[in-house]
Simulated scan of single mutants.
Amino acid sequence: MVFDSGRDTRVLVAPALFDEAHKLRRFTVEVMRRLGGSGIDCFLPDLPGCNESEQDLALIEPEDWRMALEAAARHFGATHVLAVRGGGLILPGKLGGWHYAPVKGASLLRTMLRARILGAREAGREENVDALMEQGLQMGLDLAGYSLSGEMLRQLGALVPGKQAGITAIEHELVGGRSLWLRAEPDEDPAQADALAAVVAVALAA
């Protein structure tokens, strides 16, 4: 999705990852829409193996996502990057910008493992984190509807928000409201979209 009017300021959006991507999709687009109205072009690419990408997610590693974002940044002539949640774990190099609501890869992984264990329990099966991870590291694992390779699981668990030069963290408390990624279903909050877009727009105008 793009909001492209050929303007000088051009923001590449690194989307949230896995199930959080679905829960935050409308929010992300609404932030982009507001930035577009403020004179800022925005670009939201599909990561390899996700959404309309034809690549097999089971063959993808986090580095593939980072390289894809770097390619997208070159393609669109991005001047800045706005990462949402786990998108900050795969930031393209050299671009300054913002990381909204930083999260560790291990935290994303734990959330998906818990969801799988709860689903198994409801189906009358018992699973546990240690056994699932042992299986996953050897043969890959389906989590939250995503087929993840052992290498994806290994790398994801080690990823932490970087201290990349020029990247400013925007904690969720600055935006306010209940965290959308914690809601049971995808949702939106215009006030949160207004707040995040305002933070970015004001920073760009400074």
Rank of each mutant, 00 (worst) to 15 (best):
M152D: 00
E61Q: 10
V129W: 12
P62V: 02
L153W: 00
R183L: 11
A165P: 13
D41P: 10
S179M: 14
G124A: 10
P102T: 05
R114N: 14
R178W: 10
S179I: 12
A21F: 00
G96E: 09
G105H: 00
A123R: 14
T111G: 08
A184V: 13
E171L: 09
A169I: 07
A120Y: 07
T79W: 09
A72R: 02
E122G: 10
A184M: 12
R26H: 09
G96M: 08
L196H: 03
D142E: 14
L95N: 04
Q138K: 13
P92E: 07
D41I: 08
L180V: 08
M32H: 05
A21C: 02
T168Y: 05
F3V: 15
S147Y: 04
G96K: 15
L69A: 03
V11P: 10
G87E: 00
G157C: 03
Q155L: 03
A203F: 03
Y100H: 09
D130H: 11
W98Y: 09
D194I: 07
R154A: 08
Q155T: 01
A16N: 06
I170C: 02
G39R: 10
M67R: 07
Q55G: 05
A195S: 14
E70N: 12
P186T: 07
L35T: 05
V160D: 10
Q135L: 13
F3C: 11
L143S: 03
C42A: 14
W98T: 05
E30T: 13
E188I: 12
Q55P: 00
G176T: 14
V175D: 03
A58M: 06
P48M: 04
A197W: 06
F3T: 13
L137A: 02
E185T: 15
V13G: 02
E126F: 15
S53Y: 00
L118P: 06
V200K: 01
V29Y: 05
M139P: 01
A68P: 03
V13D: 03
E54V: 13
A21R: 06
L95G: 05
K104S: 12
G145V: 07
P15N: 08
G88V: 01
R25A: 07
I170Y: 02
R110L: 11
F3L: 14
E127A: 08
G124Q: 10
E54H: 08
R33L: 11
F18Q: 01
T111V: 10
L17N: 01
L12K: 03
P15R: 09
Q192E: 11
L196K: 05
P190L: 08
P186V: 06
L182P: 04
P102I: 05
D56V: 10
E185L: 14
D142N: 12
I40L: 09
G36I: 06
Y100G: 01
G39L: 08
A205H: 12
R7V: 05
A195W: 04
T79A: 09
A131W: 09
F27W: 04
T28L: 06
A165G: 13
D142T: 15
R26Y: 04
I170W: 01
V2A: 14
T9I: 15
